[in-house]
Design a binder for these strands. Structure first.
Length: 931
DNA sequence: GAGTTTGAAACT
DNA sequence: CAGTTTCAAACTC
């Protein structure tokens, strides 16, 4: 049984594991000071009851620790007000369906790992609507993520491109692929406790994230539980649970996840994001008292990072710092600060200090990293704390009202000090590469850092940290007790937060795709649930008419139902794209404009048809083959705000189709006008509102390069028999059976690719290349035809419309190079040869005749009395005769006379020649006779 | 559309 | 590396 509970840390057993929703603290933008209140929501998970595929057990225990529905209502109201005040987009998520429901207690017996992914939809701008680009630009620049070799257990969450309404972004991406992408958000929680309690879910983000908790690079998703003032967590991959020490209480602001110590002695540090600069603010509100901030103190770095981590293995981890204002003297007004940490900069991160004015500083520090202090005033300025809301938050409020601070980043305008929960740089390994060829070190793309949002345990409120720099995303939040269909937030109108009505059944079996209808009916989100096994990937993709679709891996807490959705934003994404043809030596980097906007990546196989690439803020390094495809037929769309998701074109089409289907089925309407003009490839015909990128491409209207569908039946499309696979493409719209050439079987696919490459390193290279000489195409390997004469499509050379070359081993090849010019030359040669033969024959005949005449025995002088003309048969006469005959032959050929006619003409000419000779001789003789 | 042919890929 | 088998596309009817 899984209980969704509001957090009452004090009441929870220390050893219990709970999944807690961590709200990311969104620093306010330009709006008036917003209240800074964080809600720490915990989800008690009965690990024993949680099956890998069953989240249906989510219930709300009835005990004093739990929020009641009214509390949730209050939270909602507060949230709404905060949203209004801060004009920020908050991301809320509801973990668990029945927040108000059952009193089932947790009977935890087993560790449940769940991956929660949130599909966010970019609606243009970042949550902080105020010049997000200006916020922490340097961080974006510094943020890089390595997506290679991420643990498969991580499920990444990709953030859709901000303004993208593109179908391209309506794509389904496997979780592993997401992890491979920088902006993936990995959200894994482990429930290990048998008793209900509050827990904190540590969200790992492969990319630098706004907030990061912990951990060793090699660690899998971490689960942190707050129990009885202690934070305990379990990090996947670690042998045992990690007890997070030095967090006495979660009550006060000072409470921060600092260190975790595993049962086996491993200590995990909870580190803040890479904050290079301390943020100092003065508290003017006065709402926060020192007492409130007591809890905020730098934690002793008593923990050490797990030794397993290496720099290369480091991955970003989201750590959310929950700061609880002692409201009304009671616990429960947690203020959550989200910090992010990149693995690389793990040690360089700066903790966030929250300093109360006049009382000194209370540090919310994350161990091992520099401390960044924020005064209350600053907090207010940043929107973390609003004077009005602050009082509500502040102590003595018996109510458990929690305010989700949904502004993590403050606009630089408001506060020069930038609180960036984002790591300057993050190197994250990606467990899965979307590209087929698992070649290491091929390509890295700088990409925006994504921010992960925590899942709201109760009340379904989860605040997501949205980085201003990042392109706006929509976060789909499942509403629990909150009003269904309520979209929290966003003054920007971008709808950063999408609340999914609790009534919507987002949950499905593991691996299933759940449909989420976005509020307003303008968009559908498809969430694929994934079990925590890690092998399965889940994707969440949203489809909308004109909206950007984000595909986000979604993990379901027990595999059964997506308990929550988390979102993340990406600032810069480092996408490592591995070309399917590893041999491609050249790696081209496409550096989009640095607009401060994050883009979502478009994942494409190296050889896959790339319909469009939007050159936005992302820095994408593409394999040479990919680039070639891009250059050949793809369109690179400049976009300053969009993120790119590279997928096989067919996936785009697939998503589009799904979108259409869903549109038709659910009869949803795009009720939201989208100002975003930079859409990715949009093949949706109904997307008339703005020019589709697809229209600018050279591809088909659907944005897909024509491709023959395969019909594989036995190869699972994982062998080179399959053209799709051989071309590095995913099967789409194929007729294949038991196809594994898709994202759902990415692991198998990768293995198959590896196997193929082992057999033939050039397996995925184009078979047709340029010959040594010139640019003439030729089959690199050559054909081996035996029967077809290389004149049927069985022959690869013939199919490629190229003549067989020396590389071929074909038998009886008739696929010879026959160009028009060469045919002409050949004909000429043959004609010349024939002519020569004819001439020779004629010449010989004439010569014979002449000789016959010449050597004829002279008649007796008595008979003729005349001299024989052979006396005139000099060499000159013979040459002249031959020339005449040859000229006649040529004339006959020129006239295209038949051979017979030609011979006749030549003979006639020869006769004339003889006549002339005779006449000449006769004259000569006549002249000499009378003498 | 079923059956045959063909040659690349995979296997031995 | 060669021979054989498997496979899917091409082809034929």
């Amino acid at each position: 049984m899984l209980n969704v509970r509001c957090i009452r840390q004090s009441s929870r057993p220390r050893n219990d594991w709970y999944m807690t929703v961590i709200n990311e603290l969104i620093v306010g933008g330009t709006k008036p000071l917003g209240g800074a209140r964080a809600v720490v929501e915990t989800l008690g998970l009965d690990a024993g009851a949680l099956g890998d595929g069953d989240l249906s057990a989510l219930t709300l225990p009835h005990n004093s620790d739990q929020f009641i529905s009214s509390d949730l209502e209050t939270l909602v109201n507060i949230q709404a007000e905060l949203d209004r005040l801060n004009s920020t987009v908050g991301v809320e998520e509801t973990l668990g369906e029945d927040l108000e429901g059952g009193a089932d207690s947790l009977a935890v017996g087993e560790t449940v790992e769940s991956v929660v992914t949130v599909v966010s939809e970019d609606h243009g701008r970042s949550v902080v609507a105020h010049s997000p680009e200006a916020i922490l630009p340097e961080i974006m620049e510094e943020t890089t993520t390595t997506v290679e070799d991420m643990d498969m257990h991580e499920i990444g969450m990709s953030s859709p491109s901000p303004e993208a309404e593109d179908p391209l972004q309506q794509q389904e991406i496997s979780a592993t692929q997401f992890t491979s992408v920088s902006n993936n958000l990995t959200f894994t929680s482990t429930v290990a406790s048998k008793t209900p309690g509050s827990s904190i879910v540590v969200i790992q983000s492969p990319v630098a994230s706004s907030a990061s908790v912990i951990t060793s690079p090699s660690l899998a998703p971490t689960h942190v539980t707050v129990s009885g003032g202690q934070i305990v967590g379990k990090i996947a991959g670690m042998s045992s649970n990690v007890a997070i020490t030095s967090v006495p209480q979660f009550q006060s602001l000072g409470q921060t996840l600092v260190t975790a110590k595993s049962a086996d002695g491993n200590i995990v540090q909870l580190r803040p994001a890479n904050l290079n600069r301390p943020v100092m603010t003065s508290s003017t509100a006065g709402n926060l008292t020192t007492a409130n901030l007591q809890g905020i103190k730098p934690l002793q770095a008593t923990t050490k990072r797990p030794a397993t981590g290496t720099a290369g293995q480091m991955r970003n981890v989201f750590a959310k710092v929950i700061i609880t204002g002692n409201q009304h003297g009671q616990q429960g007004q947690p203020i959550m600060l989200a910090t992010s940490q990149a693995g690389e900069t793990f040690c360089s991160g700066q903790p966030i200090k929250i300093i109360s004015s006049g009382t000194g500083q209370s540090n919310v520090s994350l161990l091992g990293s520099p401390t960044k202090a924020i005064t209350l005033a600053q907090a207010q300025q940043m929107g973390l704390l609003s004077p009005t809301k602050l009082q509500q938050i502040l102590p003595s409020s018996p109510t458990k009202q929690s305010i989700i601070v949904n502004k993590l980043m403050s606009s630089p305008v408001k506060s020069p000090a930038k609180i960036t929960m984002m790591p300057a740089s993050a190197v994250v390994k990606s467990p899965t590469k979307i590209l087929p060829a698992p070649v290491s070190g091929v390509t890295q793309l700088k990409s925006a850092v994504s921010i992960a949002s925590a899942v709201g345990g109760i009340g379904g409120t989860v605040s997501t940290t949205v980085k201003p720099l990042l392109s706006p995303q929509k976060v789909i939040i499942r509403q629990g007790a909150l009003k269904s269909g309520t979209v929290l937030t966003s003054s920007s109108g971008t709808g950063q937060v999408i609340r999914i009505p609790a009534t919507q059944n987002v949950v499905g079996t593991s691996g299933s795709i759940a449909q989420l209808q976005m509020p307003g009916g303008r968009q559908l989100q498809y969430v694929r649930l994934v079990s925590s096994s890690g092998s399965n990937t889940s994707t969440v993709m949203s489809t909308g008419k004109s909206r950007t679709t984000s595909v986000v891996p979604v993990s379901a807490v027990s595999g059964g139902k997506p308990v929550s959705l988390s979102t993340m934003r990406s600032q810069q994404q480092t996408v490592k794209m591995v070309p399917i043809a590893p041999a491609s030596p050249a790696v081209r980097t496409v550096v989009p404009k640095s607009t401060g906007q994050t883009g979502q990546r478009i994942l494409i196989p190296a050889s896959a048809p790339v319909t469009q690439l939007r050159a936005g803020s992302n820095i994408a390094t593409l394999s040479a083959s990919a680039v070639n495809q891009i250059t050949s037929g793809a369109t690179i769309l400049p976009s300053g705000t969009s993120s790119y998701v590279m997928l096989p074109a067919q996936y785009v089409h697939q998503l589009q189709n799904q979108s259409h289907q869903q549109q038709s089925i659910l009869n949803t309407h795009n009720t939201v006008s989208h100002s975003s003009s930079n859409s990715a490839a949009s093949a949706e015909p109904h997307n008339q509102s703005r020019p589709s990128v697809a229209t600018r491409t050279t591809l088909e209207p659907n944005g897909i390069r024509p491709r023959k569908p395969c019909n594989c039946t036995k190869s699972q499309c994982l062998k080179l028999y399959c053209d799709c696979f051989a071309n590095g493409e995913f099967c789409h719209m194929c007729n294949c059976n038991n196809c594994f050439n898709n994202l759902e079987h990415e692991e198998d696919r990768q293995r198959a690719i590896k196997s193929c490459l082992e057999r033939n390193p050039n397996a995925f290279r184009p078979k047709i290349g340029k010959g040594i000489v010139g640019d003439e195409r030729r089959h690199n390997k050559g054909c081996n035809c035996k029967r077809s004469g290389c004149l049927k499509n069985y022959c690869e050379c013939y199919e490629a419309k190229i003549p067989c070359s020396n590389n071929c081993k074909c038998v009886g090849c008739r696929n010879v190079e026959e160009t028009c010019d060469k045919n002409t030359l050949r004909d000429l040669a043959e004609a010349a040869e024939v002519r020569v033969q004819q001439q020779t024959a004629i010449k010989n005949k004439l010569s014979a005749q002449i000789q016959d005449i010449a050597f004829r025995p002279p008649p007796p002088p008595a008979q003729s009395g005349t001299r024989q003309p052979f006396n005139f048969m000099t060499q000159e006469v013979l040459d002249a005769t031959c020339m005449c005959l040859l000229a006649q032959a040529e004339e006959a050929e020129r006239m295209e006379n038949s051979e017979e006619e030609a011979e006749r003409f030549i003979i006639e000419e020869f006769g004339r020649c003889l006549v002339q000779i005779i006449e000449c001789a006769t004259k000569t003789e006549a002249n000499s006779m009378p003498i």
